[in-house]
Design a protein around this nucleic acid. Structure first.
Lengths: 158, 158
DNA sequence: CAAGATTGAGGTTTCAATCTTT
DNA sequence: AAAGATTGAAACCTCAATCTTG
């Protein structure tokens, strides 16, 4: 059977785009695993928990509507509700409601949450610096900008 | 209270590195969600399943030791075992053992798996192209190289 | 009816323990 | 003892359905 190429691989040669997605996934796993391990050992919080505290601290009034927090995290509303439960039990995040619209609920960073975040952020920053140490700093901003585009974030998001 | 800065945010100003980790996480979520949605609708496979077939197809003999597959995926050995189960039930992946060392198990791409991958790869490639459409192609290779460094991959890995 | 939020059921992955083989 | 692989229990997240409010 000439021309059959029985053992040819499935992929096309120009799969730059797919390759990017594969490496993005791989890099994400490596980074979050490292951050998770260090942070949970030191502060009892995973990186996902840290991100919640971080985005709340960043927001005006240190609070966000739950739906807006979900968008920043890239989670569903359901996932956000469930992720907040342990943080609320620990007293790091509190609930507030909107007097104008009883549908919306806010998640607010408490003082205890802010104190814990102060320490956790230092750890996270240090681990992040170690992870990216092998890379020239000028590229980091470039790649970050790129990643924001990929995530489809509007300028309204941070 | 002069000099107290009661409302100061926790983060330091130089958190380029942490910001990168946050955006990497956010971008990964956006990308895999899009790929998952399209692929599961068309082929009944998630992107994680696709990656398994892809890495097997890429490997010599279209097979990998389970521990090596785990490293490529960025999963634990446990996660790899469990991820393979549905693919084995569908007949897309088969098991092989090493006659020299009874400890090791191989995962092998079957003919059926290769046929499905041929279609799924075309879909994945197209979706990946749409996701990265807003970005100059020259940067894509650059960022991919960067992501490989971050993932801590040796040259032995693809 | 649309938006925000929550809940039940189910899928996926991890951790720790275990088993087998080297 | 170390390496490869698997399993029980638990954690985390999604989907679909539901509830409340606008």
């Amino acid at each position: 059977m000439p021309g059959h190429r029985a053992a040819a691989r499935v992929e096309r040669a120009d799969d730059r785009n797919l390759e990017f997605c594969l490496r993005l996934t791989r890099a994400h796993l490596a980074v979050t695993r490292q951050l998770d391990n260090v942070m949970s050992g030191l502060h009892g919080l995973g990186f996902a928990d840290f991100m919640i505290l971080h985005y709340l601290d960043r927001a005006p009034g240190r609070r966000l509507r739950r739906v807006d927090l979900a968008e920043r995290l890239g989670l569903t509303a359901s996932g956000t509700t469930r992720s907040l439960i342990p943080l609320e039990k620990l007293g790091l995040v509190a609930r507030e409601s909107d007097p104008r619209d009883a549908r919306v609920g806010f998640a607010v960073l408490t003082d205890a949450g802010r104190q814990l975040l102060a320490h956790a952020a230092a750890t996270a920053s240090q681990v992040a610096a170690e992870i990216t140490a092998a890379v020239p700093a000028t590229r980091l901003d470039d790649v970050s900008k790129f990643l924001r585009q990929i995530a489809g974030m509007n300028s309204s998001n941070s």
